[in-house]
Design a protein around this nucleic acid. Structure first.
Length: 895
RNA sequence: GCGAACGUGGCGGAACUGGUAGACGCACUGGAUUUAGGUUCCAGCGGCUCACGCCGUGGGGGUUCGAGUCCCCCCGUUCGCACCA
């Protein structure tokens, strides 16, 4: 054994001058921290940039490789901008209220604050190990009373402006779980988890009047540079539609049934009306004869959840026996009740025009109601029955005095006529609903509202009392923050008022002899994330949520990076709050996030799946996926089981991946979302330990475009690790002073331009590829000009900051690279002196010629004629035409 | 069903306003150094063909001297919405 020792020692010595991220990275992280390199500059004369990541929920699972993707992207941009002389605000914090910590508390009794603190510590350690350039002095935590004091303060601004109100709205209440469930959590009237019964019941909720801002939220999307897909999703979510409100008089003269329609031009084709099961018309105007049938229908309809109602395909409904009068022609129109009309949209009642609405058409066909065509493409009614509804616009028919009018004009005319007759008017509807802002949970911001209590005794001791929810009062701003009470049991309990209702000493208080009760609902998780970007501007301010000066200095956020899963809700809610704060004079710009980018998800490694029946493997083309998640044979119909196959057992053959053991069997190759249950989660800690933070950062950026969904590949990281090693080796070589000359100088300038432009455009994958090209070229150059090696280090600095700082120091410069201005390029030197021009004959490539840049067509033609391949193609033919694209291409048309 | 995005080697991906398809990297093959190597270096690497050459960006048509890129039809994948009157 002893004879091996000297070699081992030798190996150690060699190792000491090899690239060793585990030594370099902590060194520079400590250096940056000690020097405050990333502290936000105060100097107001510097131009500013506010670069923001969506802050994470600190889950117990710790960071996954998806987090560093967006964080690295913004970090690269920040380091680049600092080198360009900008004052950069780049903060990080924690969206720390949320369900998992509360559920853990319910199971274990551990206070959510304890869990949250531990999780934040883990997240922070992991994020710091990546060398991300955050200004940690601005860290915020939404569960910190010093933070949520101001969340509550903003709520009070909304309350004062009449934008926060209470309402009884139907929710999914599950008594067994003791909580309100989201629609997605209810399946077949039972809870998704546990299968407990769920009741639809009205419950008092706090609502925020986001609908008051619908138009501005829609219009101001024009002011921001966001992905079109995200803008479209927000537009559709807001769902503005213009139409008319029309009154159909009741037969008994007691009023009218109001409907909303986007097609008032089809009024003459309204052959029936439909009201939602919850509509008051049902109660008031159902005839005696229809009563039993209607009641039975309404009962079963109301007890179906929204999702069930949506899932049903066949139209159902019952005639109420009632009639109304069509305002345009005086005809009697029967009124039906059906659940395809929703109480929550429009007026909860529609005029049904089966000829021109697919849903009405289906309903009319199911119940034998007549169909009257009132729109025609050519102005002539069709003979015979319609087989389907036609929803296109056209010319009016069967519409009395309006016949022949085009749809758009008809709409305008009839809306005006109805209004003049007092039977309707223009109306705009939105799909957007007001925001249900209360949760029956413990781990959220208490809503700073209280109510008078009518009682003869002490409500804390159980005296009978009435809480006057109709008289909400704002907690005095001086009393904020309103803290959560300490509890032993964090479960919501069987009281829909929530866990806080049990904290009677907290809930009830007495002032001037009058008893009061605090609101026991808490805010949803969205609350804290609605304004965190504002607190980052002035995080320590004890007197205000932020100062006017800070807002003037930093807003708007110049670049906001985060997942597409927040495309609608978070981003819409934050915009809404921002606009309210704008109206209240606390911020001056109309939109908070000027530019938005969604990083794409990083999937797990590609997995191979074969499908097996009782008789053995079945090739992919015979496998049919069932909606329930199962699989069966396309022809035989037998059940198939998916089997995970290791990579060594498969082989690529042509377009297919097949089993080595049986080449007839094609397997499925696919990457899946990382999940604990699938066991394909990559832990960034492991990657950092093995390859270093610079390699992880570089690899995630090199994988593909930032916005794209990309599968992780464990072997792929080798490539960037090698790049870092070779960069290290390059800087250790002997060099000559000065800059390179000739083609190498031109390559350096081209690389500066490419990297600069790619960082601006967030195209990090191609920027890294350009750096690799430069490194490959420099590695071949001997002697190596030091100026070129230095530029390589400066250009790679935003991507691999630890190694860049290390090499910069080794090249004899004082740190930090963050203070070295970003290199500029000479556009003239970005042009090559000699260019390769493509030569085509009749549009087909036949070779290339080397020419001096800027050569003319004749020179090119002369050179091209010398090519064997060209001569062969031209044999016996005349050149009839020449296409010449300078410095690019010569195309000879011959025949 | 509606809407949006995307289909390029064995793999991740490049390709500016139509102008050399496959940059860069992984994997693979051969060679060199090494006792060894999850090391380093050199070379090769879309398919067919001995070669000349032919074919090739999901499929089919079109515009053009020239199409991955533009237009039309179809197929597939992913995401979002889903009776919104």
């Amino acid at each position: 054994m002893t004879w091996k020792l000297p070699e081992a020692l030798l190996a150690l010595k060699v190792m000491s001058d090899r690239y060793d991220p585990s030594r370099i990275e902590p060194k520079w992280q400590a250096w940056w921290e000690a020097r405050g390199t990333f502290r936000t500059p105060e100097d107001p004369s510097l131009p500013k940039k506010y670069i923001l990541d969506m802050f994470p929920y600190p889950s117990g699972a710790g960071l996954h490789v998806g987090h560093p993707e967006g964080y690295t992207a913004t970090d690269i941009v920040c380091r680049y901008l600092r080198a360009r002389g900008f004052a950069v605000l780049h903060p990080m914090g924690w969206d720390a209220f949320g369900l998992p910590a509360e559920q853990y508390a319910i199971q274990t009794g551990t206070h959510p604050a304890v869990t949250t603190r531990a999780n934040i510590a883990t997240f922070k350690r992991q994020i710091q190990s990546l060398g991300l350039s955050y200004d940690w002095e601005r860290e915020v935590d939404t569960t910190d009373p010093a933070y949520f004091k101001w969340t509550q303060w903003i709520f009070l601004q909304l309350f004062r402006r009449g934008l926060a109100y209470q309402s009884e709205i139907p929710v999914n209440w599950c008594p067994a779980l003791g909580t309100v469930l989201a629609n997605e959590e209810v399946v077949d009237g039972k809870s998704e988890r546990g299968g407990h019964p769920v009741l639809r019941m009205p419950l008092r909720q706090w609502m925020l009047k986001i609908t008051a801002y619908a138009d501005r939220l829609l219009d101001d999307l024009d002011l921001v540079k966001w992905p079109d897909s995200t803008k479209t999703m927000q537009e559709e979510w807001i769902g503005r539609s213009e139409g008319a409100e029309v009154k159909f008089a009741l037969e008994d003269g007691s009023g009218a049934l109001e409907v909303f329609t986007t097609r008032p031009d089809t009024l003459f084709g309204a052959t029936f009306m439909v009201v939602a099961p919850e509509h008051p018309f049902v109660e008031r105007h159902t005839t005696h004869a229809q009563k039993a049938a209607v009641e039975a229908y309404v009962h079963q309809a109301i007890h179906r959840s929204d999702l069930d109602r949506k899932a049903a395909k066949e139209k159902t409904g019952v005639f109420t026996g009632g009639f109304v009068v069509n305002p345009v022609n005086g005809e009697r129109v029967p009124v039906w009740v059906a659940d395809y009309v929703l109480m929550g949209y429009g007026t909860g009642a529609i005029m049904a025009v089966p000829a021109h609405d697919e849903r009405d058409f289906e309903f009319a066909r199911a119940f034998g109601i007549s169909v009257v065509q009132v729109v025609s493409p050519d102005g002539r009614p069709r003979s015979g029955e319609l087989e389907a509804a036609t929803t296109e616009e056209g010319l009016a028919v069967n519409s009395g005095p309006y016949d022949g009018l085009p749809t758009a004009e008809f709409k305008r005319r009839i809306t005006a006529d109805l209004e003049a007759a007092g039977r309707g008017r223009k109306r705009i509807e939105y799909r957007l609903r007001d925001w249900v802002f209360s949760r029956q949970r413990y781990w959220g911001e208490p809503i700073p509202i209280y109510f008078p209590v009518e009682t003869d005794g002490d409500p804390r001791a159980g005296a009978p009392h009435t809480i006057r929810y109709d008289l909400p009062m704002a907690v005095d701003e001086a009393e904020l923050p309103l803290l959560l009470p300490d509890l032993e049991d964090f479960s919501p309990g069987d009281d829909p008022a929530g866990a806080l209702a049990r904290a009677v000493d907290w809930r009830f208080f007495r002032r001037d002899g009058q008893w009061y009760a605090r609101e026991t609902n808490t805010m949803p998780q969205w609350a804290g994330s609605c304004w965190y970007y504002l607190r980052f501007m002035d995080p320590g301010n004890p007197d205000a949520a932020w100062s006017k000066e800070a807002a003037a200095r930093w807003l708007p956020v110049d670049l906001y990076v985060g997942g597409a899963e927040h495309a609608v809700l978070h981003l819409l809610y934050a915009r809404f709050w921002h606009k309210v704060l704008h109206d209240a004079g606390f911020v001056s710009c109309p939109e908070p996030f000027a530019r938005l980018v969604h990083q794409g998800m990083i999937l797990g490694e590609v997995e191979y799946t074969a499908y097996k029946s009782s008789e053995g493997f079945v090739s992919r083309e015979w496998v049919v996926a069932l909606p329930d998640g199962g699989y069966r044979h396309r022809s035989g119909g037998q059940e198939l089981t998916p089997v995970r196959v290791p990579e060594e057992a498969v082989e690529k053959r042509g377009a297919n991946t097949i089993l080595k053991a049986d080449p007839e069997i094609v397997v499925e190759a696919r990457a899946f979302k990382m999940s604990k249950s699938r066991g394909n989660v990559i832990n960034p800690d492991d990657v950092v330990r093995r390859h270093g933070a610079d390699a992880l950062r570089l690899y995630e950026m090199f994988l593909g475009p930032l916005e794209a969904v990309k599968p992780w590949s464990t072997s792929g990281i080798q490539g960037v690790a090698r790049f870092l090693e070779r960069s290290f080796a390059l800087a250790s070589r002997p060099m000559k002073d000065g800059m390179p000359e000739g083609p190498l100088l031109r390559l350096v300038h081209k690389t500066i331009r490419k990297v600069t432009e790619d960082i601006e455009g967030l195209r990090f994958n191609t920027a890294i590829s350009a750096l690799m090209v430069l490194l490959n070229e420099l590695s071949k150059t001997d002697p190596l000009p030091k100026g070129a090696a230095e530029l390589h280090v400066r250009l790679m600095h935003p991507f691999a900051p630890h190694l860049a700082e290390e090499l910069w120091e080794r090249l004899g410069h004082p740190p930090s690279l963050q203070e070295v201005p970003w290199p500029g390029f000479d556009p003239d030197l970005c042009q090559d002196e000699s260019v390769t021009v493509a030569v085509q004959v009749n549009g087909k490539m036949r070779g290339t010629v080397q020419l001096a840049a800027g050569s003319d067509q004749d020179t090119a033609l002369g050179e091209a004629r010398k090519l064997d391949t060209v001569q062969r193609q031209l044999e016996g033919k005349d050149i009839r035409k020449v296409i010449w694209v300078a410095d690019k291409l010569l195309n000879l048309i011959a025949g």
